[in-house]
Design a protein around this nucleic acid. Structure first.
Lengths: 225, 225
DNA sequence: ATTACTAGAAGGCGAGTAT
DNA sequence: TATACTCGCCTTCTAGTAA
């Protein structure tokens, strides 16, 4: 199965909503999409499953199909690349939300030697030991999802024998249109999609004189360079 | 040549920058991308050309290749659909620019019976006979390109024997965060990509008390429903 | 460019399955 | 028993390779 066939099949399945939920599918209707015989469609599905891109459950009246996270990642990666090619001009988006006091975990993680080095090398600054947490407004929550799709700057995780520290994705950003920093999308976070964690070389609370509940906007740069 | 092969090939070419400009390409390097023989790569290019998706110019040391507008449209359409599938949450973008006095053509076109009916049916309002023209700021020009990629609401053109009236694309929008209306992307316009034409059921200049040079923001809705 | 060779994909048929 | 589906076996033929 060629890689572009995989992508196209995943796209066809996504069109039917198989990303996220599992859908009913019979080989005949997929065959129409493919302009091929039901047999071929069936075989493609089998191959896709073997490669781990989709999951299937067969019953007497057809089958249930869903795209696995592996499959979805592949499709998203492709989409991101297309986006980069076709949307040369799209460079930043603005998010906004209210400051709130987090669990204090941010400070701990940011000050870990491994992460500090990652930030220094990849973002170009040594972060203040602490994160500024924003509770995003409704519009910004939607925009945040776009960030999740984009590649961003990869911050690698590590293990220290005792436990595993997960990886994260960062985007350079300007906070309140003035201060440079970055937003962090952490893979396994305690927060929901409506929370944005921000780091900066400075103590943002002090520098910007922020109190809980204050509204802050963040201009996120979508390109790494 | 299957449609997904076409898409993938166009994608490979776009990665090399063949959208917009023509690039030097030899079959060998394309063959590597395709994981196939140079012969196959060459044949694919010939087929793509025959289908009108690319143009080629062969000389003694290889060939120049570029994606035609037909090919680019295909790739963009695919991209748009992926975008719709993967970015469920992305719903509006904000543009801003300064009011300027146009050529007065807008008023003529908008009041043509055919267009009026199109607007009424597809946008849900009878437009004031005139357009508000914005000279977009730099950031907004970039965002405007995103609109060009999206499907939007199709406003059909027509012929009246004498001449042909081109089609356009519209997006519903809110002007100055208050007044409903729509932005128009006209296929053959006298203006550059830094100009946005806005229609509304109201006389926006009067209603918003606008003078030339005033800065206005427009929230463009990306979904049609 | 043409040809011959060959791997592998597509499709027909029918068995198996569950309602 | 009849139906509607998947899927394994086998044949055909397309399409890539190599000369």
């Amino acid at each position: 199965l060629k890689n572009y066939e995989v992508l196209y099949l995943l796209y066809l399945l996504a069109r039917r909503g198989a990303h996220g939920k599992s859908i009913r599918l019979n080989s005949n209707s997929l065959a129409e999409d493919l302009k091929a015989s039901p047999k071929t469609a069936s075989r493609k599905l089998i191959e896709l499953e073997a490669l781990g891109y989709i999951g299937r459950k067969i019953d007497n009246k057809g089958q249930y199909v869903w795209i696995t996270s592996k499959g979805l990642n592949l499709l998203k990666a492709f989409y991101q690349e297309l986006r980069g090619l076709l949307e040369g001009g799209w460079e930043e988006i603005e998010l906004g939300g209210k400051v709130f006091k987090g669990l204090g975990e941010g400070a701990y993680y940011v000050s870990l030697e491994h992460y500090r080095k990652e930030f220094l090398r990849k973002l170009g600054f040594d972060p203040f030991p602490g994160t500024l947490n924003l509770l995003l407004d409704r519009e910004s929550v939607k925009k945040r999802r776009v960030l999740e799709l984009l590649p961003g700057i990869e911050i690698e995780g590590f293990k220290d024998g005792l436990r595993e520290y997960c990886s994260a994705k960062a985007f350079k950003a300007f906070i309140a249109n003035k201060v440079k920093g970055a937003v962090l999308l952490i893979e396994r976070t305690h927060y929901g999609p409506d929370v944005l964690e921000i780091i900066s070389p400075y103590n943002l609370r002090k520098l910007l004189n922020l109190k809980d509940g204050d509204y802050v906007t963040v201009r996120v740069l979508l390109r790494n360079d």
